[in-house]
Design a protein around this nucleic acid. Sequence first.
DNA 1: ATGCCTTACGTTATACGTAATTATT
DNA 2: AATAATTACGTATAACGTAAGGCAT
Lengths: 279, 279
Amino acid sequence: MIETYLLEYFIAVIENKSLLKASEVLHISQPSLTRAIQKLEEELSLTLFTRERNRLILNSQGKIIEEYARDLLSLERRLEEKAKELKESENSLRIGLSAPGPLFRYSSILLSNAKYQKVITTIEEEKALIAKVKNGLLDLAFITEDYQDDELLTQHIMDEHLYISLPKTHFLSNAKKGLYFHDVDGQSFLLAKELGVWDKILEEELPNSRLFRQDLDNLDEIVSASSIPSFVTDVTIEDHRSSDRVFLPFLDDKATISFYIIIKKKNSSLLKNLKLNGN
Amino acid sequence: MIETYLLEYFIAVIENKSLLKASEVLHISQPSLTRAIQKLEEELSLTLFTRERNRLILNSQGKIIEEYARDLLSLERRLEEKAKELKESENSLRIGLSAPGPLFRYSSILLSNAKYQKVITTIEEEKALIAKVKNGLLDLAFITEDYQDDELLTQHIMDEHLYISLPKTHFLSNAKKGLYFHDVDGQSFLLAKELGVWDKILEEELPNSRLFRQDLDNLDEIVSASSIPSFVTDVTIEDHRSSDRVFLPFLDDKATISFYIIIKKKNSSLLKNLKLNGN
DNA sequence: ATGCCTTACGTTATACGTAATTATT
DNA sequence: AATAATTACGTATAACGTAAGGCAT
């Protein structure tokens, strides 16, 4: 079994092209490195370097082992990073979302909770969210289905309704009550990336539209600088009141999503602490 | 830096679901394992097991680390296997081929050479073969180009000519001198896998044919049991004389390949030892 | 002589085993 | 009491540093 530190030393020797330099970088003595390289060669029953005039030169076998060693070390680094991430998540409130809406609505409550140093959010498929809440990888999740399970507490928490965002000059901007998806199917839209369940709804209901996805940071700026239709929901609409746009609700049933919060029953006290006031 | 043995122990504990059992499997004492798991947890700053009733139960964080650990250990195992393979190749004659022909022609000479315990062959692209001969990963290679290089000795060694193999009942089987690719393009053929440069030639010259590739072990049997055309070359034709087939040469220029042996100049003595009698 | 790798040797760190301890059923 | 993990302690392995020894420039 090849220990990690031997591979680390091996790569350091390759990168520094000298035992002496590598030993300085590694903060060990040069003889230690000599022995470590010898040990690695012995355990692999291979010669990795040709010893030519006070120099170690990586040979063709060494080059092949180098690739494996680098792969191994990078995997080891990823393991450590993952461990760090998991460690961090211990002091964090880990929230799963099937769409960003609940985060917008409740961000102030969630972020101001003193108990947690950090709020970690992830947007995923509902099945994955349910599994992660159940196995403890998430503290709670917002899904769009009234999912019932012995282990879980499920509670309706909010609805989110989709609006179209149109420049005032748009020919549909003075529709009275609102409009339907099929009225605007075929038009281009600007929208954010990673909208979870909204992604599927929009792709299904607007099959002939082109959906130009933007990073959330840039979206507002690009929208206000263009005359391309966009979307808002009742959750985000207040943030856009000042803009030079008209917001009209979609009248289709599919334009409304109900959110349910799911949480392990034995963690239900957390839910009380958060004081998310659902209906 | 997480050492390999810690991950090995970790996986053993998971698989044996007990420190005691795992320690027996690993041939170490149980307290050693306790400490190793503690050390792993400490180095990752994570709790991997919940200590419930005299039992260790892998928790959700542990399950995630388990995946990384398994990946790492399998990579480590592959490294050791690769090392073994390289070790073996030291006592082997490593031959590269751009098509199998030269191996058939010279197999008796190559395999009977007392100096080497084993002959390792590989079929690859000619560029890769040239590179590997130059960097020492191959002792010699057979390519189809008269490649000239300061480091390499290049020598014409043989030609290989392609024949069609037809059942005697086939409507083309009494063609006199031979036939052309375009005469049979569109017909189906049985042929072996991994024919190197022949693959490209056949796909280019018979673009409308379906090429049914078989494992070499089964090919002869399947061919003799069917009426589907196949291929032979002057190298393999003697082995097929007894079969119930007619062999007709392709008359196209592309149906002949010239092979050149390439070898490092400083290894040219090896070439003499092998006594491959080229023209 | 100088620079760099290797060998020799004594020291220290650490992984190990044995034995005692704790905790759970 | 029995089973299984943990803690305590002494031992042995092996990785380490210092110092001395090659070897080529």
